[in-house]
Structures are given as structure tokens and as C-alpha cells.
Amino acid sequence: MSIVQKIKHYAWIVIQYFSLIFFSFVALLPIVSCVITAFKTEEEYQTTNVMTMPENWFNFDNFIEAFQKADMGRAFINSTIILIFVVAGSVMIGSMLAYVLNRFKFPGNGLIRSLFLFATLLPGIAMQVSTYQLMYRLHLINSLLGYIVLSMGTDVIAIYIFIQFFENISTSLDESAYIDGASYMTIFFKILFPLLKPAVVTVMILKGVGTYNEYYNASLYLSSPELKTVALSLYTFVGPLGSKYNLICAGVIISLIPALIVFLLFQKQIYSGLTSGAVKG
């Protein structure tokens, strides 16, 4: 390598690492500053700069107070119930629909596919005007059931992930099972569904994180206090508590922990799931 090349080589390395460190810092700064503040006592929060480290990193008082004030115990139970049903429902509905659409030719197959595709173009928030009326008439406002059904009914991405996955499973498998006398029900549940495992994991994670973080529909349809989800419970801090950021930050951090755990455990699946969901076009 000539000297010029060497300089170029090292300059590029410096630029690379500088960019990575800088943008990681940008990404983490808002969160880290929140963590710092969450550990501060009231007095520290009032007197020190926000970026000054707290004196005691084991001061969990804010977390305890935030957890109680926002009734987050209740909220975690609600979120868990919603998650279980929405995720299980989406996996079942999505995989069954994908099976039928992928394996059988029947009139209307194309039409149904386009119906689901077109639905992705309709922005959910825009439709709330009439969805709210519908939910009102069905007596599904302020009911966990209503919110669960609504969340399952407006999911399309799961279906695409499953259809993609089915395309890679050979039909000869179904064929030989059918010849051996298995019913379509058996073929789906006993043979194909177990093979879908990677897709199921992907859908569970993506749908799970999405449902856990959803707040717009939840704020419309789960407004009574005992039905609040974790994201919604943070609304407790709007109003009189609105300037007690040591408390608010603690609440925010608590609400992030489940997402963080899932992220640390399933990083690879999240990345590949997003990638496979995005290429559908």
C-alpha cells in the first residue's frame, strides 16, 4: 500500500467508527438522560443539571412511586391478557388464511388477496371516525374483548409473512399426506403448522411488540381506569404531575423494560422478521 492509500484507509476507519459512535450516542441520549433522571431524589432533581449523574444508583423510590401512582400492576395484567389473545389470534387467523390462499385455487382467491392488500393502504387513524361508531353500536367500547377483536381484525402483515413462508414449503408434502388418507384439517394442524415455527415466532414478536406499544386505539376504546394498558398508564403523568420528570422518567423506563427484554432475547428474529415483512412490496 502506498502512503496515500494508507492514509485513506485509516481515515475511512476513523470516519466509520466516528459515525457509528456519534449516531449511537444520538439514539441513546434521550433514553439515557431519562434513566439518569429516574434515579434522582426530588431534591437532586430540583438542584442539579439533568445530565449530572445521580448520587445513588440504587434509589428505586421513583420507580416504586411511579408504579403505584400509575397503577402499573393492573396495567401489566391488562397488557398481558391483551397480548396473549391478540398474538394467539393473529397467528391462528393469519396462518389459516395463508394456508387456504396459498394452497387452493378457487374463484375469488385473487380478489381476497387484493382486499387484504388494499386494506393496508387505508390509514387506521383516518377510519376511527366510523370505527368508533361501529364499536359503540356493538357495545365494545371499554371492553378488553372489543379491543382484542379490533386489533386482530386489522392485522395484515402476519398474513403476508405466512403466505411467503408457505410458498417455500413444497406441496408434495400435502399431496402425499392426502393420499395417505389425512384430511386437510390434519394436514394443516399436524404437518404444516409445526413447519411454520420460524414464521410463527416472527409474527409473535412483531405483533407482540406492536400490540404492547399500541396507544391510539387503546386510548379510544380502553379509557376506563381499570382497563388501561401499560402505554396508556403513562397518561397518569399528564396534568398535575406533568413537571415531576424524575417520576415520569421512572414510569417511562418501566414501560420500556419488556420491550428491551424481548429485544435482547430475540434480536436476530426481529431483524429478519422486519426484513421479510418489508420485501413483500
Binding site: 439514539a27 434521550p30 406499544n213
Partner: peptide, 8 residues
């Protein structure tokens, strides 16, 4: 990670 944080 910021992508995984809830809106509120």
C-alpha cells in the same frame, strides 16, 4: 432500539 419504544 428507539423503534421499539411506545408512542406515549
Amino acid at each position: 432500539f428507539p423503534y421499539l419504544i411506545n408512542g406515549i
